[in-house]
Amino acid sequence: MTEYKLVVVGAGGVGKSALTIQLIQNHFVDEYDPTIEDSYRKQVVIDGETCLLDILDTAGQEEYSAMRDQYMRTGEGFLCVFAINNTKSFEDIHHYREQIKRVKDSEDVPMVLVGNKCDLPSRTVDTKQAQDLARSYGIPFIETSAKTRQGVDDAFYTLVREIRKHKEKMSKDGKKKKKKSKTKCVIM
């Protein structure tokens, strides 16, 4: 069974824990209790493949930012979460993405942009803004509501699919490099 290491990042209060708990335990946590770091595991079937999701729910508070490099190193894919009623959390996505790329030393890291709290009427981040940002990053965008469960499975499952595509691409690139290195030079 394939294991996928997913990391949920975003500013404090955007609903990272609520999304994760909704996926794992099928219930909505409405009281806000700032996370330092929590880890969850769940076995699911995605596109006919049974897999184990190892999900790291991270601290959004700035005082825990020193811990970010460590979990970013171990993560295979990242859910970059903002709240649709919090423009600052949307603007912060850029910083999370840049930090992930720096730590992973790669421009090509599996990510999904997630606009959470889409059940709320007080939207300050337009869907088109988020779609445009995701398009500019070359990553999928999904709106979710941890409260109603809308888009929750889709967000995590899409990230797994992005990781699969990335692994497939990397193995193809690896095979191309191996083929090239088999060419021999004969000096007579």
Rank of each mutant, 00 (worst) to 15 (best):
V14D: 12
V8I: 14
L23C: 12
C51A: 09
A11S: 09
L52Y: 14
T50S: 12
Q43T: 13
I36Y: 09
G13T: 10
L6R: 01
I46V: 12
D33P: 03
D30L: 08
G48V: 06
A59T: 10
N26G: 13
F28A: 03
E31L: 07
E49C: 07
G15C: 00
Y32A: 05
D54P: 05
V45C: 14
G60R: 04
V29D: 14
E62R: 07
L52A: 14
V8K: 02
D38W: 00
T2S: 14
R41Y: 05
E3S: 07
T35W: 01
G60A: 05
D33Y: 04
T20A: 11
I24R: 05
T2Q: 13
Y40Q: 00
L56V: 15
V14E: 13
K5G: 06
F28I: 05
Q61I: 09
E63S: 10
Q61W: 06
L6A: 04
G12W: 06
E62Q: 11
Y4M: 11
E49H: 09
D47V: 04
S17G: 02
L6M: 08
G10Q: 01
V8T: 05
D33C: 06
I21Q: 10
E49Q: 14
L53H: 05
E3L: 08
T50C: 10
V8A: 05
Y32G: 03
V7A: 07
V44L: 13
E63P: 12
D33S: 06
Q43I: 06
E62L: 08
T35F: 00
P34A: 10
C51F: 13
V8D: 01
N26R: 12
K42R: 11
I24N: 15
D38I: 01
K42G: 07
E63Q: 11
V9F: 12
S39A: 07
Q61P: 12
V7C: 11
C51V: 14
I46K: 10
Q22R: 13
A18W: 03
L23V: 10
G13K: 08
R41K: 07
S17N: 00
K16V: 01
G60Y: 03
K16I: 02
A11D: 11
D57C: 01
D38Q: 00
E63N: 11
I21D: 03
Y32D: 04
T58P: 02
D38G: 02
L52H: 14
A59M: 06
L56Y: 09
D33T: 06
E37I: 04
I24H: 12
D38Y: 02
I46G: 11
E3D: 10
V29M: 14
A18R: 03
I21P: 01
V44F: 15
I24L: 15
V44W: 07
K16N: 05
R41D: 03
V7L: 08
V8N: 02
D57L: 00
G10N: 00
T58W: 03
G10I: 01
L52V: 15
L6K: 00
G48K: 12
G15M: 00
G60T: 04
L6T: 05
T50H: 13
Q22V: 03
S17H: 00
Q61Y: 08
Q25V: 09
D57N: 00
Y32N: 05
L53M: 10
G48R: 10
G60H: 06
K16F: 02
D57I: 01
T20E: 05
T20K: 01
L52D: 15
T50D: 11
V44Y: 10
H27P: 02
K5A: 04
Y40L: 02
V44P: 11
L53A: 10
D47K: 10
Y32K: 02
Y64R: 13
E37S: 03
D33V: 05
T35A: 01
K5M: 03
E3Q: 09
I55T: 11
F28E: 02
P34C: 05
T50E: 12
K5C: 03
T2R: 14
R41T: 12
